[in-house]
Simulated scan of single mutants.
Amino acid sequence: MRPGVHVRRAASSDLEDLVDLCLQARAESGAGRQLCAADRGTLHRQLAALASVPDGVVLVATCDGEPAGMVLCRLLRPGMLSDAVVLSLDAVYVAPLHRRRGLGHAMLQAAVEVADAAGAQDVYAAPLPGSRGMQRFLARLGFAPAAAHRVVSTGALQRRLALDVPTVARRPAARGLEDLIERRRRARARVGADEDLARQTGASMSMQVTRAVHRRRPSPSSTTTS
């Protein structure tokens, strides 16, 4: 850690500075509500709540006494889908004027100490799409891809689900049409087979009748007397 850089747990007196950092991060990323609220009062209450819960961790970094960065994270305890404790990094941000001074390393060092003390086996990070600098920074520290996150607004998802309903409903009808075509094809095949059998049967009967007639005709060499 460079001289003048310090990382510590945030206190109530740091909340306004943290709100400023959150709003800077929001404006820089362009992610809008996906990152944080735009209202200062809402952000203040949310940060205070995160810092007050047992598994919430709010770290603030200062450079020469000025607020320069923050880490917002949570300890996720074992649950229904996981039997391990993990540390989830919800936000890692360094103000532009204080970058390339070792604040990112210092903040992650403090975060990994929190993870180690809690017995967390893994540290997860979800950098915002487009944050190439953070992506490269995390990759250098050994973070590997673990999952792909996608997001959609509730209203957009409702509209898409409503549009997809007719498509789902038509699938049985399409299958029924295929079954109908197959049944007709089989029926035509049976009719053709019956016609072939009838022709063969008729020809056989004709041959039998012809033979019978020939047997009953008188021999040409016989004579008639009166």
Rank of each mutant, 00 (worst) to 15 (best):
A117E: 15
M205H: 07
Q34A: 04
A117L: 12
P129R: 03
A156V: 04
D14P: 14
R8Y: 04
P145Q: 10
T210G: 11
S12A: 14
D64H: 10
R100P: 00
A49F: 02
M107N: 00
A174G: 08
L75T: 10
M205C: 10
G102L: 00
G65K: 00
A27Y: 01
V123M: 14
L23A: 03
T201M: 07
M134C: 09
V85D: 02
A212R: 08
M207A: 15
R216L: 14
L180H: 12
A106H: 06
P218R: 06
C63M: 04
A25E: 07
V191K: 06
V123D: 03
D20G: 09
Y93G: 04
T42N: 01
L50P: 01
R199L: 09
D55R: 06
C63R: 07
V152H: 09
A11L: 13
R211V: 06
A95P: 08
M205Q: 15
L97Q: 15
S12G: 12
R175D: 10
E178T: 01
V7L: 07
V209L: 12
L89H: 07
V213S: 03
A27T: 14
L89I: 14
T201G: 09
P166S: 13
V92W: 05
R188C: 13
R171V: 15
G133A: 10
R171T: 12
Y124P: 05
R184P: 05
G192P: 02
G176C: 13
R101I: 01
C73S: 15
R170Y: 07
Q135Y: 08
S12K: 10
S13A: 15
A193R: 13
P3W: 07
R159F: 04
V94C: 15
S82E: 07
G102H: 02
R211H: 11
H105K: 03
R8F: 05
L15Q: 06
R45F: 01
R199C: 12
E16F: 06
H98K: 00
G69H: 04
E66I: 06
V114G: 00
V85S: 05
C73T: 02
R216C: 11
C63I: 00
L75V: 12
R140M: 12
P166D: 07
P54R: 07
L108C: 05
Q158I: 00
A162N: 02
A173Q: 12
L197N: 08
L87E: 02
V58W: 01
V112I: 06
V57G: 04
V53W: 06
Q158Y: 11
A111E: 03
A120Y: 02
A61H: 05
S219Y: 09
L81C: 13
Q46G: 00
G176V: 06
S204W: 11
L76W: 08
A212Y: 06
A49C: 00
R100G: 04
G176T: 05
R159W: 04
C36K: 01
A31V: 01
E113W: 10
D179M: 09
A61E: 00
D90H: 12
G4F: 08
V209T: 08
L76K: 10
A48I: 00
L81Q: 14
A118L: 02
V94I: 11
A118C: 07
M70P: 00
